[in-house]
């Protein structure tokens, strides 16, 4: 059965094992308590010999532990990990509870049965894990903040700089050419409205719950104004039908439009884009509604067979569409603009 020499003494082995090893009989009386167990629990072996296992448990678990132990003793299973899904808790001599991982092994010899419990104190590991989790969370928050700062820089500050420069020189321009002055004043109005739309769009990112509360047609108009302000692309918005939609549908459609328009602004070189949202009753006579969202542009387009999806946020759009059971279709070709089409039946 084993290649180990027969003279290997288990007690010697237990003495050097880093896990606590506690052996007990069928009545849960402790028969062996190794060095590591002494260190982890704070008892000496002499203090716990013949004591019930209960002394090593928080009182509230004593009852359920007895039951589990009896079940295991009666079962044909020879070994089992305890608390497979979550850590169990044990109790030190000073009353302190600690999280642990443990396994139990049953040895049967004639009429006698021996149980060996192997237990590892995971206090330290849990602390490190939770620190790592906290760090990861902090890093995510920091990354999100710097993304917002970049967006503010890329968008709003550039627009406001232009606004301030035009406002500075507007009196001079007006004096010399009132027609041009009026044109620049109109530009000022557009730029400041655009900056406002961009601020609102960015504020939505800071408070996503606002996204759930707003009306989709308002959100899409704001998005259009914000993209126009940032990139100069003219964005028309056409809304048809009753656009009061459930929050998850609304958020998904908004995110898809946002991603599509980001591409238009960044990559398309388009002068014009369009957002069309249509909500109408399904034409198969059944109750329910059909939602179409189309975003297209007159830009340079791309070869759909070679463009990497991750580059242009296709993955994000696909995920969003899948989340609400919608069909997403992207058509484009070099020189022929791009159309993103989303269709869902609600």
């Amino acid at each position: 059965m084993t290649l180990l020499p027969a003279e290997l003494n288990l007690t010697d082995l237990f003495a050097v094992i880093v896990d606590a090893v506690v052996a007990c009989d069928e009545r849960q009386r402790i028969l062996l308590f190794n060095k590591s167990a002494e260190q982890i629990f704070g008892y000496t072996q002499d203090e716990v010999l013949s004591q019930p296992l209960d002394v090593l448990l928080p009182e509230r678990f004593v009852e359920v532990h007895r039951r589990h132990f009896a079940e295991f003793a009666a079962s044909p299973v020879a070994s089992r990990a305890m608390g497979e899904r979550r850590p169990i808790y044990a109790r030190r001599k000073n009353g302190e509870e600690f999280p642990a991982e443990a396994a139990i092994v049953k040895l049967e010899r004639a009429e006698e049965r021996l149980f060996i419990v192997l237990l590892r104190d995971i206090t330290q590991r849990q602390r490190i894990e939770s620190e790592l989790r906290a760090q990861a969370q902090q890093a995510a928050v920091a990354a999100e903040r710097s993304r917002l700062a970049r967006d503010l820089h890329d968008a709003v500050t550039q627009t406001l700089f232009s606004v301030s420069v035009i406002a500075d020189v507007l009196p001079r321009i007006w004096e010399r050419d009132p027609e041009e002055g009026r044109r620049r004043l109109k530009e000022l109005r557009q730029l400041s409205r655009g900056a406002l739309a961009e601020m609102r769009t960015l504020l939505l990112e800071l408070r996503p719950s606002a996204l759930m509360e707003a009306n989709l047609s308002d959100l899409l108009r704001q998005l259009a104004a914000s993209v126009n302000s940032r990139s100069g692309v003219e964005v028309d918005v056409q809304i048809e039908g009753e656009t009061e939609l459930s929050p998850d549908v609304k958020v998904s459609l908004y995110r898809i439009a946002q991603e599509a328009l980001n591409n238009v602004a960044k990559h398309s070189n388009a002068s014009h884009a369009q957002i069309m949202l249509t909500v109408r009753p399904t034409n198969n006579g059944l109750a329910g509604r059909q939602v179409h969202l189309v975003i297209n542009d007159n830009g340079c387009g791309f070869d759909t067979t070679i463009s990497k999806p991750t580059h242009i946020g296709l993955d994000i759009m696909r995920e969003r569409a899948a989340a609400i059971g919608a069909q997403l279709d992207i058509r484009s070709a070099i020189g022929a603009g791009t159309t993103v089409h989303v269709e869902a039946v609600l």
Binding site: S162, V165, V169, R172, I173, E180, E187, R230
Partner: peptide, 16 residues
């Protein structure tokens, strides 16, 4: 790279 910045600067240059 921002068209509105270019437009603002164009306005500025036309004023002097």
């Amino acid at each position: 790279d921002h068209p509105m910045v270019r437009s603002g600067l164009k306005a500025l240059l036309s004023a002097y």
